[in-house]
């Protein structure tokens, strides 16, 4: 169970990240905490990508899926960074408008 490391081990780490990220999303009301939860969920997905494309965990697989997985992870990271930048800009705007970061306060749609 402890060794050797299989893709399933990685999957379990991914599960922990995903579930904690989701709980974070559901329980926090701070807009930045919600952003943190999203990051965790994205990382859970990344872990799976890496695990399934790992040349270490699948040393004999032919054809190797190495690059596809890693490139997907790169794209996810870039998108996550972009998302964080936009979300943060929205959070700052939200804050300067409502004076709080509690998302429940922002329930009016009119500008």
């Amino acid at each position: 169970m402890f060794s050797p490391i299989t893709p399933a081990h990685y999957l379990f780490v991914g599960i922990v990240l995903f579930v904690t990220g989701m709980i974070c999303l559901l329980t926090k009301r701070n807009i930045i905490a919600i952003l943190i939860g999203v990051e965790l969920i994205l990382n859970a997905a990344n872990i799976n990508f890496i695990a399934f494309s790992s040349p270490v965990l699948f040393p004999k697989r032919v054809p190797p899926l190495v690059l596809d997985g890693q490139i997907f992870v790169l794209f996810v990271m870039i998108l996550a960074a972009a998302e964080a930048a936009v979300a943060l800009a929205i959070a700052l705007h939200f804050y300067s408008r409502f004076g709080t970061v509690d998302v429940d306060q922002g329930d009016e749609l009119k500008g």
């Binding site: 490391i5 990685y10 780490v13 990344n46 872990i47 890496i50 695990a51 494309s53 790992s54 040349p55 270490v56 965990l57 997985g69 890693q70 992870v73 790169l74 990271m77």
Partner: peptide, 14 residues
């Protein structure tokens, strides 16, 4: 974990 899984570049990128 990425580094361990042989994804050095992605790990550094992370």
């Amino acid at each position: 974990l990425f580094l361990l899984a042989g994804a050095e570049f992605v790990g550094a990128m992370q």
